[in-house]
Amino acid sequence: MRSFSYERAASPAQAAEAAIHNPGAKFIAGGTNLLDLMKLQIEAPPHLIDVNGLGLDEITPTEDGGLRVGALVSNTRLAADMRIRCDYALLARALLSGASGQLRNKATTAGNLLQRTRCPYFYDTAQPCNKRQPGSGCSAIGGVSRQLGVIGTSEACIATHPSDMAVALRVLDAEVETVRADGTCRRIAMADFHLLPGDTPHIETMLEPGELITAVVLPHPVGGRHIYRKVRDRASYAFALVSIGAIVQPDGSGRVAVGGVAHKPWRVEAAESELPRGAQSVCERLLAGARPTRDNAFKITLVERTLRAVLNEARG
């Protein structure tokens, strides 16, 4: 690990300002992904800003009947909150399907959104990777790509976003609340928060330098059956090959997003009108334009079959 200086921030605005004054600085909260990457020197920030003292660790009701989840609420606390379990069960299920008990105890709501891809070539510092070293090339294209993306990919990168939580937040139309170094706040829709790789796979979110996530805002609950189904190589403690997050209403309408297939949670609102006609109709639109590799072409079939299982469960 490269050496770094360290400070504890006292307020969100101060944290954002400290980041601007220390180019290359990183915020650290749970640290479960950042420290892992720092040990491998994939991340080498010269300065760390510890945001754990900012008090952003509460889940509070919003005026329009939703919930505001503080950036520092741990994945365990979020999944255990009875309001989340009853009104946003999809989110609780997604969180509980990810990582291990120890990791969920440390991992935070904001950190989960900002975790980096688990593409093996991003992790292998001996190989070119446009995300790790812009312009060096993509080893995954033509390499071992079973786990990697099938849609929204580019010539520069076929990595996936590994978060289960983010898939649920996309289905729930959550918003990410931030503060910038000049003290101004904004809300970013989950639909816009994560970016597709394009020519700049190293830029993964809408966040500006120094911008700090302060909360995730959940809108008023929408009811319906909440299902998160994750398909993976082990029964537990593994990243998704594909996952489906869905809310299905009694009349068969609903929302659906897919994890494990793209650089961001994959949701195509126009495909959701096909839900009453079944998984095949939905997937024809949801996965239109997919460009799988030979290794991961199975994901196209797997998404459709998993969605079919989800819709059967919703009816049952």
Partner: peptide, 15 residues
Amino acid sequence: GVRINSCLTLAVMHE
């Protein structure tokens, strides 16, 4: 009282 992986956290974060 909460279980964590002690390898993935910095000692200075535990004042």
